[in-house]
């Protein structure tokens, strides 16, 4: 049952060199810089997003994800979800409006997977970048690189996937769209959604908590995914895998790394999900096909290379 969590809102990613990271995320991925703050964090957005930012880069001495946030319908929903999280037994940290520029108050909690998540209701709405909201053109002409359309989801590796699923389902109203189940019936991966998308966030079981696998950005077509692959070669950017198709969600995809070793994905297409849909199940024995639908073989980098 949906509980007023609308969509992924932002992700804060640690990078080891902010200028190299900006070259990567802006000139290659095609995000747009919209702000900087006194801590030195840089705020970016993809052009179809209506809010001021969706990606925050923070310079640090190790890469990884600081937190990911979801936008909720309004402040009343934020208030009640905050109470629900606490009643469920989560420690909730209240972060004042303005700690992130142009963002309202945030409610932060740690999932059993070890990752930090935030909910918020308000962020400055600047509208889509480069197009009007009245009689809009199809796309802005001065986009760069891969021309990412939207920050779409993260895949995270962490501990206690069953408890993480329960929290997202019972408290936050997410729905399980796809899962990977081992022969003993344990869920080793969950793809969960608060929308019609095949996933707004996904988790894979891992002995170490709070690991970052990738942040994913949506492109319009398979042609754009191939063009993204060309750009990786032209810029000598480390590619991980693809262009290929995932079995899970059936999206068409390519993985690559930012200059600090954080994995990125750009993808297009994929399945849809309504709350009345039964979850799609992949067998852990067939994980190769579930992840890389064409190769049908698991590459160890997929499981072991994390930040």
């Amino acid at each position: 049952m949906q509980k007023g969590v609308m969509r992924p809102g932002h992700v804060q990613i640690r990078v080891m060199n902010i200028e190299e990271a900006l070259d990567h995320y802006c000139n290659l991925v095609g995000l747009i810089e919209t702000d900087r703050d006194e801590q030195g964090r840089v705020y970016l957005k993809a052009w179809t997003e209506v809010d001021r930012f969706s990606v925050v880069l923070r310079e640090a001495d190790e890469p990884g994800m600081d937190f990911m946030a979801f936008k909720v319908l309004n402040d009343a929903v934020l208030e009640s979800l905050s109470a629900d999280l606490q009643a469920y037994g989560c420690d909730v940290e209240n972060i004042a409006a303005g700690e992130l520029n142009n963002c309202g108050r945030r409610v932060r909690f740690q999932a059993p997977s070890g990752h930090y998540f935030e909910l918020y209701a308000e962020k400055e709405r600047t509208g889509k970048w480069g197009v009007s909201n009245v009689n809009p053109e199809a796309w802005p002409r001065d986009l760069k690189g891969m021309k990412a359309e939207r920050f779409d989801h993260c895949l995270l590796y962490g501990t206690d996937i069953p408890a993480t699923l329960k929290l997202f389902e019972d408290v936050l109203g997410f729905s399980l769209a796809e899962q990977v189940v081992d022969p003993d019936g344990n869920r080793v991966a969950i793809f969960i959604t608060t929308s019609m998308k095949a996933h707004d966030i996904a988790f894979i079981d891992c002995p170490e908590p709070n690991k970052f696998h990738h942040a994913s950005f949506c492109l319009d077509t398979w042609d754009s995914v191939l063009r993204a692959a060309d750009l990786l070669t032209m810029t000598d950017t480390p590619k991980d895998i693809g262009p290929t198709r995932h079995g899970l969600t059936h999206g068409q995809t390519i993985y690559f790394f930012d200059p600090s070793g954080n994995r990125n994905e750009v993808f297009c297409g994929g399945d849809y999900h309504y709350p009345d849909h039964e979850p799609v199940t992949w067998k852990a024995e067939d994980l190769g096909k579930a992840i890389f639908y064409h190769d049908r073989e698991l590459n160890e980098r997929f499981l072991e290379v994390l930040t």
Binding site: M16, E62, F257, P259, S260, R263, E304, V305, T307
Partner: peptide, 11 residues
């Protein structure tokens, strides 16, 4: 072993 090739993953 080859991983991220960017000094992040440690493999």
């Amino acid at each position: 072993p080859v991983g991220c090739r960017s000094g992040g993953c440690g493999v």
